[in-house]
Design a protein around this nucleic acid. Sequence first.
DNA 1: TTGCGTGCAAAGGTTTTGCATGGCA
DNA 2: TGCCATGCAAAACCTTTGCACGCAA
Lengths: 140, 140
Amino acid sequence: MKTEYKTKTRMAIIDYLKSNPDTRFTARDILKAVNRDGSNLDRSTVYRNLERLCREGKLVKYKETDINAACYQYSEDHGSCHDHMHAQCSECGKIFHLDNAILDDTAKKMKKEYGLEIDYGKTVIIGVCEECKQLNEKNK
Amino acid sequence: MKTEYKTKTRMAIIDYLKSNPDTRFTARDILKAVNRDGSNLDRSTVYRNLERLCREGKLVKYKETDINAACYQYSEDHGSCHDHMHAQCSECGKIFHLDNAILDDTAKKMKKEYGLEIDYGKTVIIGVCEECKQLNEKNK
DNA sequence: TTGCGTGCAAAGGTTTTGCATGGCA
DNA sequence: TGCCATGCAAAACCTTTGCACGCAA
């Protein structure tokens, strides 16, 4: 069994996560944010830490069609994100943790009509959130 | 308005799509397949054509967490893919084109409980299809 | 002291872009 | 003849890997 070290670098990364919950970010975002204060964090370290956090289930990794980099998302309150569904605003990237029951009706139809058994942990419903909708109205 | 030319190259790419419907493939797959017969298709041309086909809604583009390249999927029967929802089998990658009505109930709840307006064209429900499910049973 | 974590450098892969040329209409 | 599409080369990215050194335990 490997012992885990509590290094300054890792703490800096985790700090970033904690101050940016339920939002999408890339490896690059972390790198820039942490180094803004003069640190010398390296890309490879970011990737290695992110990979580990994902393996531990503390972080969700996913890819967006229009962004050419993996996105990650951290959540304090929702324990393992593998067991429930998510929705995401296509404009600001904000993630909502859903009650699976919201899909009950759809799940039944899916099974009957297409033979597909929904994987709640992997499904992400895309839409536009209230905030962005109002912002769009204003800017018209 | 731009005039579209019907070039040999584009036809070769479209031929590939038509002979590989409802299957996931990458830009690299097309490149290799088309050049197998001695053609000299270039990467950039592949990307430019795929981008255009996506824009026209004839092709679905998406990314998988574990594959380090964009995946595409072509379907003969479903017109523009921007207006309806999709579901995808997480094991074989097959894409199902859904009737949006299947989400009616869920959409209402989403709007009421989370203020989120669903974007049907971008949403992909993930699950395991009938075929893969049976295959899994067998291999147990 | 031990051995995990980090920074550095380099490499591998995908995707994009500028430019001159070729080919469709 | 126009002008779109292609091939080529190069560049921009993202991500991974090997290695020596530094630092936590």
